[in-house]
Amino acid sequence: MDLINITLCNHLTELVISCDHNGIIGYANPAAQRWSETPLEGRPFPALLTPESGHKGELFLEVARRASCQEPTLPWELTLGTATRYTVANFHGYSDNGCIVIIGQVEPGETTEMQHELLQLTSELAEAQREQRRQNRILQQTLHEQQRLLKTIHDLTAPAVPLWEGVLLLPLVGQIDSHRANAIAGELLQRVSAGRARYVILDVSGIALVDTAVARHLIDMAQMLRLLGAQPVLVGINPEIAQTLVHLGLNLFDFITVYSDVQHAVAYVLRKMKEVTL
């Protein structure tokens, strides 16, 4: 290349490279050399590119070898830089006197940057969805666990213990609301009629809070038991329950037998059963 051309090339922002017929670089202007740490002269053209573009660079050389100055190749995108951080450049090439002349224009840095960012964004979104799926699975699992617990609790609603034939013990624990009271009553009546129970010991010492509503439920339950021919025996009445029941103004003792604890209640039931058999 003559002097004036070389001076011109030194000042161009475009990459200018000239290769021999085999694609070995004979000249690279400073704009091209900037992309390589080692001198480009004497190395094959793909050495300028990132490894991704290696094979594409070979294909491009082949096309450029057949192109003429009047009709250079179409623009070819090749990547420069490092394997992990590349920049896209558009290259034209043509053959001239056994030389392959290659001119490249680097895409504005922002464009490449933007594409990287967009791709990263897609990637992050896809991962966020994976995280979402993970959370959903955990929720599902928790829900499943909870349903199992609820079922257990439901099964324990009316834990009627058959003490012996015809005698049931029902220890009531926890909060009683009307919903639960109904469930207990339903379950209990089933058991009583199925087991032909004649005595039901209702232990209310484990009930958390007794208000008039709960007291009414208890009385209802006792009355229903009577209708089925079973004798309710109430035990474990604490001072609050006593007050509440009295405030209701009902004469309980017509249909309920009351004892302070389970032992006394059992003794009573045993006595009664003996009387009946006698």
């Binding site: 094979h55 294909l59 491009f60 995108e77 896209v88 967009l118 897609t122 990637s123 979104l125 896809a126």
Partner: peptide, 22 residues
């Protein structure tokens, strides 16, 4: 690699496939 698609198109294809998979 055969100059029939640009890097931008390749990026888009990657993003599309990724979103389809999700």
């Amino acid at each position: 690699e055969t100059n029939q698609m640009t890097v931008a198109q390749e990026h888009l294809a990657t993003a599309i496939t990724q979103s389809v998979m999700a």
